[in-house]
């Protein structure tokens, strides 16, 4: 367990010190959301109706930007080889790194989402739900993304391929994330979407590290 925390701590420290990735993701999130009214027109009623959808899609795209570095940097400098000889099973190595990605990307984006909601005239009542759903839904983004990052670690143009592989897998998270926010009127619909969203995140927290570790084992050979 000590190894797990050491790895998590190191990855979070690196992300904060290197800073660029988090800043770029947040900046991208802001720009994409700001472009939407420019494309759709400044009709506040329309924007308010589709705000949840815009925020979630922009969030997914922003998170996607930082995914390819999860394993690539450690692969390039040989760290991954040494991590594999450690006391931690590779499944927990990938879990620690996915968790670090969630802490350094998922949480900042989730905190940023309601701020950007202002730009889209998001209904005030939806704010707490938006924060809750983005926090509960983003683990799926990191843990599914880690699978794609591990699969495409050694490919040229890995980023584009990663998007092609991972975005279809994000469909359930997207659907239930948005439906929880826009189902605000009906409490039963909200509870159902929210619980299903949490369940999807839990499934990916188990599935992601297993699949990512399997992919890393292939790469290490």
């Amino acid at each position: 367990m000590k190894s797990f925390w050491a790895l998590l701590h190191r990855d979070v420290t690196l992300a904060i010190r290197e800073g660029g990735a988090i800043g770029t993701a947040l900046g991208f999130f802001l720009v994409v959301v700001s472009l939407m009214p420019l494309g759709l027109g400044p009709d506040l009623n329309l924007l308010s109706r589709i705000a949840a959808g815009i925020l979630w899609i922009a969030l997914l795209l922003a998170a996607l930007l930082s995914l390819n570095r999860i394993f690539e940097a450690d692969h390039e400098d040989g760290t991954l080889d040494v991590l594999a000889t450690g006391p931690l099973p590779l499944e927990l190595v990938t879990a620690a790194k996915s968790l670090a990605h969630w802490v350094t990307t998922g949480i900042p984006l989730a905190i940023m989402a309601p701020v950007l909601g202002i730009l889209l005239n998001l209904d005030l009542a939806a704010y707490p739900i938006l924060v809750a759903t983005t926090l509960v839904g983003t683990p799926a983004v990191s843990f599914l993304g880690a699978i794609g990052a591990a699969l495409t670690m050694k490919t040229r143009r890995g980023g584009l391929l990663l998007a092609l592989i991972v975005l279809p897998l994000y469909v359930p998270t997207l659907i239930f994330g948005i439906s929880a926010v826009s189902a605000g009127a009906g409490p039963t619909g909200l509870a159902a979407s929210f619980l299903i969203l949490a369940a999807i995140s839990l499934v990916t927290i188990v599935l992601g590290p297993l699949a990512a570790a399997a992919a890393l084992k292939v790469h290490l050979q």
Partner: peptide
């Protein structure tokens, strides 16, 4: 899960 979510949507 995708099938289920698309039906729900």
């Amino acid at each position: 899960i995708i099938k289920f979510s698309v039906d729900w949507w």
